[in-house]
């Protein structure tokens, strides 16, 4: 089975992002970049398939600025077999990104495309379903497990109180909610193996994708309002404190 994972490089979850001077984007100076966490789950899920069946080929691709190469190198170091980069220094419209990825998918001919269910920078969750739509492939959202089943795949999803099992004929696309295990760290031998691999790159423009897409524009970005200091109730016994708490929750916080 060949699995392709389109991934996105995003600011690391430990980075405190701040709004840039234009008021519409985030400051990128000094930011540590990482693979988006749900994409890491997708990689781990694919690598668990590869652990179970060594003939599995796991490829990753990203559409993004040149610095995204680091994210691809990390994916290779985790154990992925192939990586390729579509360089787009300017942010392309999401639908155009999906179309560019569709071209890559058509060339690479994977049996399964796994996308993180959303990228942790803008949390739109757009690319997975849009890519399935452009390809005309079956799409199952937010899966937690894959079980191969003769020309098809069982795709497991967690639902309230249990799980659902869907069966999709391959090729298919799924978005990943979580892998069974936490994503593996790139091991040092993995890093050295990855070093020896080429990461072919091409320009976004060279894919000639139709870039007509409904226009989206970020109008403004604001940090959430600073949280005020908390209040500690310390006068009185337990009963009085509970009464004060109930009053405050009703009159001040207005949650009761």
């Amino acid at each position: 089975m060949k699995i392709l994972i389109p991934l996105k490089q995003v600011p690391d979850s430990t980075v405190r992002v701040s709004v840039a001077a234009d008021g519409k984007s985030i400051k990128t100076e000094g930011v540590t970049w990482s693979i988006s966490p749900y994409d890491e789950y997708a990689i781990e899920m694919a690598l668990e398939r590869k652990d179970a069946d060594a003939s599995t080929v796991v490829a990753v691709v990203t559409v993004g600025p040149a610095r995204s190469r680091d994210a691809l190198r990390q994916a290779l170091a985790m154990g992925c077999d192939e990586a390729s980069l579509v360089v787009a220094e300017e942010t392309a419209a999401p639908l155009a990104v999906a179309r560019a990825l569709a071209k890559v998918v058509e060339e690479a001919k994977p049996d399964l495309v796994l996308c993180g269910k959303q990228a942790s920078d803008d949390d739109q969750g757009f690319i997975g379903p849009a890519l399935a739509e452009v390809l005309g492939w079956a799409h199952v959202a937010t899966i937690t497990k894959i079980v191969p089943a003769d020309g098809a795949a069982e795709l497991w999803r967690e639902v309230e109180g249990g799980h659902e099992v869907w069966k999709a004929k391959l090729p298919a696309l799924a978005t990943v909610h979580k892998s069974e295990k936490e994503p593996r760290y790139p091991s040092l031998p993995g890093i050295m193996k990855a070093k020896k691999k080429e990461i072919p790159e091409r320009a976004f423009a060279s894919l000639n994708v139709d870039s007509s897409a409904p226009a989206l524009e970020i109008v403004a970005m604001e940090p959430p309002p600073a949280r005020g200091a908390g209040k500690i109730l310390k006068d009185g016994d337990a009963k009085q404190t509970a009464q004060q708490l109930a009053t405050l929750l009703r009159d001040e916080a207005k949650v009761l």
Partner: peptide
């Protein structure tokens, strides 16, 4: 280098 940076990142995250 890219490998040194990745090694540092693996060790840092671990």
């Amino acid at each position: 280098t890219e490998e040194q940076e990745l090694a540092r990142k693996t060790a840092h995250d671990f």
